[in-house]
Write a protein that binds this DNA or RNA. Structure first.
Lengths: 196, 196
DNA sequence: ATCTATGTTGACCGCCCGGTTAATGTGATA
DNA sequence: TATCACATTAACCGGGCGGTCAACATAGAT
């Protein structure tokens, strides 16, 4: 693997575990078996490297969501599809939830992340609203619903160490992930039934 | 106000906005109109100050939850009471959500926070389980339910800047907080009805 | 074989951080 | 008013940080 990619992957791991400030360029260089100066050569600065990591995640996530949302279907189906996609994305990109959650609570790159977030959220809200005639689900506030399901999902990943001790088994195991997905889908079903 | 308390409050604000690492003792001293060395005199170290802040929050939260959970009642009522208490606590202690959320994703004081968290969570789970005979709600997994509602609630506060741009109004205004509370309570109602 | 663009290295720099210390201020007690 | 414990201050310190740079390695093109 080339140095650039080795740095990228080591940094992704270190940033997600320890955060931006607590990760030093010396650590990244050591963990990737490269040289500290190469970080600046390939990414201009420590921040530039961080941004590159964030950008890659957001590109992947946006693409994933767009792929799911183009399909038509009833409200329940669309909501279920988004839930599926989000859970799968977080399960397959475990650094993402940690980095985003930490950044949104006050990192220096906050504004950029918020922009991406708003974009994705509005895309989802529009898709949900378009799915049903005004008469149905008129009691459901799409924004509130989105916040709720987003919170349900991402919290499971950012709190995985707490949850591990609650469940007394690995929350990120295949079986437990399936259980979580099932639970969230059940919640979606329940709220749509209650309001429909 | 004495220096100790001035430092405490300035630090609470700065830590919650910028995080532990990005906040310097010099900033804290300046913001509190005191002297940098006083931080070490009153709190031993920067970390000690941080711990003192965390400890105060956790004491308050534990007390609040215990006050709510001693009351008897049906499952729905207990869940509603916890939701109420949590939303009110987060609304009245706005630094708390930011600090905890950032810390749980990888701060140095993580272990201690997890301990508190587990304790509170188990207290809530026990109270919920005790509320209903095994036969009812047997399809609801109390742990999953807790994670879901906790996530719904705390995300609203940690993502308040994102939500502000979604709602185009202040998420922490009295009216919007009431709306959020109502939504979460509606979700609780829906899921209990669906499973009951 | 030579040139050139790209990649890589270790040594170095200045800054700012958390923490320490010795001197000084302050106010209750006797 | 002398005492004494506690509170406050400015100056200082060593260390580790992000970033820079001049020298060197490598390999494809000519």
């Amino acid at each position: 693997m080339e140095a650039r990619e080795k740095i990228f992957q080591a940094a992704d791991r270190l940033f997600s575990v320890n955060g931006f400030d607590a990760t030093t360029t010396r650590e990244i260089a050591e963990a990737s078996n490269t040289n500290k100066a190469l970080i600046h050569y390939h990414f201009t600065s420590k921040r530039g490297l961080y941004q590159a990591i964030l950008d890659r995640y957001f590109d992947n996530l946006s693409e994933t969501l767009q792929g799911v949302l183009v399909k038509n279907g009833a409200t329940g189906d669309r909501l279920a599809a988004v839930i599926e996609a989000y859970v799968n994305f977080l399960a397959n990109n475990r650094s993402y939830a940690l980095i985003v959650q930490r950044e949104i609570t006050g990192g220096a790159g906050r504004e950029r992340i918020i922009e991406h977030m708003i974009h994705n959220f509005q895309m989802i809200i529009t898709a949900l609203r378009d799915a049903y005639p005004e008469s149905d689900y008129r009691n459901i506030d799409a924004e509130q619903l989105l916040i709720s399901f987003y919170g349900m999902i991402i919290t499971y990943f950012t709190y995985s160490d707490v949850i591990e001790r609650l469940l007394k088994s690995d929350p990120l195991s295949r079986a437990n992930l399936a259980k979580r997905k099932e639970h969230v889908l059940m919640m979606a079903d329940a709220v749509l039934k209650a309001a429909g």
